[in-house]
Every structure is written in structure tokens, then in C-alpha cells.
């Protein structure tokens, strides 16, 4: 399989006051098209930082980040925003839905940045909600949904623009085991049946088992495949 994501010699340093912290150190990584990768590791190991670099939310201090053949670490902020809108879907631990919008309006948000007509957007939103099994909850607001349902809406939002890559940061961290398994099954289906490439950060070894393979991080470096 060809590499969808290619990371070469990436380092990331943060300066907080007078202190500089090196979060990632000369990291190299390839993620194949259609992969479902779980990034594991203790807190502070740099997995969310790596995920942010892959998703184009942040830029490395050194090194290159290529996604689908495009170097994203050199893009301007505006171009990077456009790139994210087109190529990446994000799923967060706390869903991060806009509380004032209905499920359907939340899912529609990425489509507002496209040239699709209102009717086409509505159709795509309905399709995305159907994929996550929430077609009947379209008119509900986040506070009227359970945690699992809210996360499904977030997944529908991540999917609706048909991105190249799904980036999930602890997507089951706020859910009970049963609901977490449902969400992970859904991600697995999206990977297996819809061919979506997924990179997921998790602390949870059971969650990581749903991925095709796992990588372990520690102190800003990849320490190999998780057992």
C-alpha cells in the first residue's frame, strides 16, 4: 500500500515562558492509505501533538509532513485551513459540537465551506447521519443527545465532506465501555467498508484493538509497534 501520510525528521518544540520543551524528536512515520492506526502512549508522550501535525492544526519546528503527496508544513494559515476543509475530518474526545445548532446543522458546518447548493448539502448531511445511524435525531441539539449519540454526530460531521483522512483524538475517552465499543465499531466499519484512513489517539488498550495496527509513543518518539 502507498503511504498517505509521510512524516520525515519532524520535531516540535514549544516555548512556555523561558522554558523550551521538545515534544517530538526527529520523528519518521508512514501511514498507508486505508490504514486504521492507533497511536498509544502515556500522557505527555506527544501523541496528540503528532496528531495535530498530521491533521494540519499545527506546524512542526523541523521536518516535513506530507499528506496525499502534498507538503502541508509549508502551507500558509489560509491554505492550511482550505486543505483541512477538503482533506481531513476531526473527531474529538468531548465531541466539540456547537451547542446552539441541531445535529443536522452541526454536520452541515464543513459543507458551508463548499460550493454545494442548500439542497445538496441537506442531502449529504442526511446521508452522513444515516451512516452513523442517527437519521432520526437530525433535529436534536447536542444537549438532547446521549454521549454516544453526540460522538456519532461528530463522526458524521467529520465524514460529511468525504475527507481523505479521519483524525480522532481519544474518541471514546468520555464514553462508557458499551458505547465506546459501538463508536469503535463504527470507525472500523468506516475504515473497512468505506476505505477511510483513520489515525486515532487513545489511552485505552481495548480501543486500540479495533485498529489495524498500533504504534506506541514515549517521550516524543515512536517506540515501535504496541504489543
Amino acid at each position: 500500500m502507498t503511504a498517505l501520510v509521510s512524516i520525515r525528521g519532524v520535531s516540535k518544540r514549544y516555548t512556555r515562558g523561558k522554558q523550551t520543551v521538545e515534544v517530538l524528536q526527529k520523528l519518521n512515520l508512514d501511514i498507508a492509505q486505508g490504514d486504521f492506526l492507533a497511536l498509544m502512549g502515556p500522557s505527555g508522550s506527544g501523541k496528540t501533538t503528532l496528531l495535530n501535525l498530521i491533521g494540519g492544526l499545527d506546524k512542526p519546528s523541523d521536518g516535513e509532513v506530507m499528506v496525499d503527496g502534498k507538503r502541508i508544513d509549508t502551507l500558509s494559515a489560509g491554505d492550511l485551513a482550505k486543505w483541512r476543509a477538503r482533506h481531513v475530518g476531526f473527531v474529538f474526545q468531548f465531541y466539540n459540537l456547537l451547542p446552539v445548532l441541531t445535529a443536522e446543522a452541526n454536520v452541515e458546518l464543513p459543507l458551508l465551506l463548499t460550493n454545494l447548493s442548500k439542497a445538496q448539502r441537506k442531502k449529504n448531511v442526511a446521508a452522513a447521519l444515516a451512516v452513523v445511524g442517527l437519521a432520526d435525531r437530525a433535529g436534536h441539539k447536542p444537549n438532547e443527545l446521549s454521549g454516544g449519540q453526540a460522538q456519532r454526530v461528530a463522526i458524521a460531521r467529520a465524514l460529511v465532506a468525504d475527507p481523505t483522512l479521519l483524525v480522532c483524538d481519544e474518541p471514546t475517552g468520555d464514553l462508557d465501555r458499551k458505547t465506546a465499543d459501538e463508536i469503535l465499531n463504527l470507525l472500523q466499519t468506516l475504515n473497512r467498508d468505506h476505505g477511510k484512513t483513520i489515525v486515532m489517539v487513545t489511552h485505552d488498550a481495548k480501543a486500540a484493538e479495533f485498529a489495524s495496527h498500533q504504534l506506541h509513543m514515549d517521550k516524543g518518539a515512536l517506540v515501535g509497534e504496541a504489543p
Binding site: 489560509g78 486543505w83 476543509a85 477538503r86 476531526f90 466539540n96
Partner: peptide
Amino acid sequence: IPEFAVLKTLGFSDGK
């Protein structure tokens, strides 16, 4: 602020 961060994450530019 977190909501605006989400919008930016989804691809809304600074200008938008």
C-alpha cells in the same frame, strides 16, 4: 473560544 477553535479546525479561515 473552543467553538471558534472547532470552526477553524473544520477549515473556517481566520477571516471567516
